[in-house]
């Protein structure tokens, strides 16, 4: 299955939602007037695109109609797509550096799928022939260590862990040293979910990040923020606050398939400084793919028959 198909399948709910809305709006005539633009804006907001980004997109559409005089469905959709791609930015991937230790640090609020994504990434790099290690730095949630160990067992990967309640920074210290001495290619560190408005937990994360940077100065360190696609506008704040605590390398959006509101990716990209790198489009391992703005947009907004 090509990347396009994976996106299309995963985003089918959102596309269905958008397409239904578009058909409703443009029923009968293919020309956009002010009322229809407002409806279009509403549609975007309902897809969790966010008020700010939606306004921006609609303003561009309005400006475009004004300059070109073309208010056809085709022209409007063209502008919408162009704006979304603009907001999402050029395609960037989570790329590993050869001949160096790559450390992927999974961060995010509770329940976004950090451990699962860590497991999937592990399997992906394993199948690429990389030497991978996992570290269970979520020492808070009950059975989080066991969950990661289960992934370790499934993928036949060593898991560095300590006991529940131990210092996560200490786990990272151990893991980094172990990865260096074993000459691993990739070390994936799973951290505990933390709500971004808990200053002490964010400080803990900053400490984890400091320890890793200090112990592995030559490694390529990639903190990855995992956001749940079903999250509403809070995702925007999450991205903002986490990027203050750690130097985010990028964002992974999970559970895009479960929601009809995949638009949250656009809301996040509109304000966040870090690029979206990964998209979780299904439960399977193959459903975790590199994020591609153009394919995402094409899958989100259906081609309408004239």
């Amino acid at each position: 299955m090509g990347l396009f198909d994976v996106f299309k399948k995963g985003l089918s709910k959102t596309r269905g939602f958008v397409s239904e809305g578009l058909t409703r709006i443009s029923a009968g005539m293919g020309r956009y007037d002010e009322d229809m633009l407002e409806e279009l804006e509403a549609l975007l907001v309902q897809a969790d695109v966010g008020v700010g980004a939606s306004l921006h997109i609609i303003d561009s559409v309005r400006a475009n109609i004004k300059t070109t005089g073309d208010d056809s469905q085709k022209a409007v959709m063209h502008t919408v797509k162009k704006e979304i791609i603009d907001i999402l930015g050029p395609k960037q991937t989570l790329s590993l550096e050869d001949n160096s230790l790559n450390i992927i640090l999974m961060v995010g609020v509770n329940g976004t799928g950090k451990t699962t994504t860590a497991g999937k990434l592990c399997l992906k790099y394993k199948s690429m022939g990389k030497k991978v290690m996992l570290a269970a730095a979520d020492t808070f949630r009950a059975a989080a260590i066991e969950q990661l160990e289960e992934w370790g067992k499934r993928t036949n990967t060593p898991v560095i862990s300590q006991t529940v309640g131990s210092d996560p920074a200490a786990v990272c210290f151990d893991a980094v040293h172990s990865a260096i001495s074993k000459r691993a290619d990739v070390l994936i560190i799973d951290t505990a979910g933390r709500l971004h408005n808990k200053q002490n937990l964010m400080d803990e994360l900053a400490k984890i990040s400091r320890v890793i940077e200090r112990e592995a100065p030559s490694a390529c360190i990639m903190p990855l923020l995992i956001i749940d696609a079903t999250t509403g506008q809070n995702a925007v704040i999450q991205a903002e606050v986490f990027s203050k605590a750690v130097r985010l390398n990028g964002i992974g959006i999970t559970k895009l398939d479960g929601s009809a509101k995949g638009g949250v990716a656009i809301a996040v990209a509109y304000t966040a400084k870090a690029p979206i790198l990964l998209a979780g489009l299904g439960e399977g391992v193959e459903d975790l793919v590199d994020f591609d703005s153009e394919i995402f947009t094409e899958s989100l907004i259906p081609e309408l028959s004239e």
Partner: peptide, 12 residues
């Protein structure tokens, strides 16, 4: 229900 859920809440 997660308090952070967005417009999807109703569908769920």
């Amino acid at each position: 229900v997660d308090a952070m859920i967005g417009q999807e809440a109703v569908t769920v």
